[in-house]
């Protein structure tokens, strides 16, 4: 690959500084969030619903536009980009979604190849005439995630775990410099959830790829992440290695609860918060 992603070893890939987001409804989703992510680090983002995890992830690839602050990827300030520049920045950030967000009526192969949309001109994508190197890469990735036999199937014909594997392949097909992962396991059963988390972490290690993974499942986060960031009401209240995440810290993040009784499988999905609704509106407004 011609693109030099790593300017120098050990340097921070992603630098988020005093990032704030206020939605139209007036609520502050993020208040001055600052952190750096070096190459190859897997960061788990935990916090209660409405704490701003989703907003933070979407501010990084500008599906949501932050109100204040900077997001720098390889020393490019993403908050200042627009049009073509923004699309170039987005293609460096692979995103994996909670409900997979595959295009259900397209084939597995088309879904994976859609990871190349930021690289190919419209006519090529319209006639599905992707460069052979892209197709080779897609086949290799599908083999890596164990879906070689499903290339021609529609995404809607796959199981949840298989769909999320396609989602991972689509993100990697972008040749990303960073993975943004929004609750990848929330709609999966506990066993599949672990398999998916393991796969995500493996590919990150293989490629020295940094990742930010938002999740509800604290034990799973402790099991797989190198570092954990705890958000509460839009502010970072914890940032450290998984070992330091103890009862006191969890109470700080989530409030008082008996932490020995956590059942990650029986996670309650709270009602949609106002933040979710405004975030949704703004994300969709960006389509225009």
């Amino acid at each position: 690959m011609a693109r030099s992603r790593l300017a120098s070893p050990g340097q921070d890939m992603l630098r988020v500084s005093s990032l704030s987001k206020r939605y139209k409804g007036g609520e502050d989703a993020l208040r001055g969030v600052t952190f750096d992510v070096p190459a190859g680090q897997v960061v788990a983002l935990i916090g209660p619903s409405g704490s701003g995890k989703s907003t933070l992830i979407r501010c990084i690839n500008r599906l949501v536009t932050p109100t204040k602050g900077r997001v720098e990827l390889d020393d490019t300030d993403i908050t200042r980009l627009g049009g073509r520049g923004l699309r170039r920045a987005r293609r460096l950030m692979g995103m994996i979604f909670q409900e997979y967000a595959l295009v259900e009526r397209l084939t597995v192969m088309e879904n994976v190849l859609s990871g190349r949309l930021g690289y190919v001109p419209f006519w090529r994508s319209f006639f599905r005439r992707f460069p052979q190197s892209d197709v080779d890469k897609a086949f290799a990735l599908l083999e890596r995630v164990g879906l070689s036999e499903h290339v021609g199937k529609r995404a809607s014909d796959l199981s949840g775990g298989q769909r999320q594997r396609v989602g991972i392949a689509r993100a990697l097909e972008q040749d990303p410099a960073l993975l943004l992962v929004d609750e990848p396991t929330a709609s999966l059963d506990p066993k599949t959830a672990r398999q998916i988390m393991r796969l995500v972490c493996e590919v990150c290690r293989e490629r020295d790829l940094p990742a930010i993974i938002s999740m509800h499942d604290v034990p799973l986060a402790k099991m797989f992440a190198d570092r954990i960031i705890g958000l509460r009401a839009g502010e970072i209240v914890f940032d450290g290695p998984p070992a330091e995440l103890d009862k006191a810290v969890l109470t700080e993040i989530y409030g008082e609860e008996d932490w020995t009784q956590i059942h990650p499988e029986h996670e309650v999905r709270p009602e949609e918060s106002a933040e979710d609704r405004h975030a949704h509106e703004e994300r969709m407004a960006g389509l225009r």
Partner: peptide, 8 residues
Amino acid sequence: EAIRATGA
């Protein structure tokens, strides 16, 4: 949204 996130 997922398609937009790829830089399309």
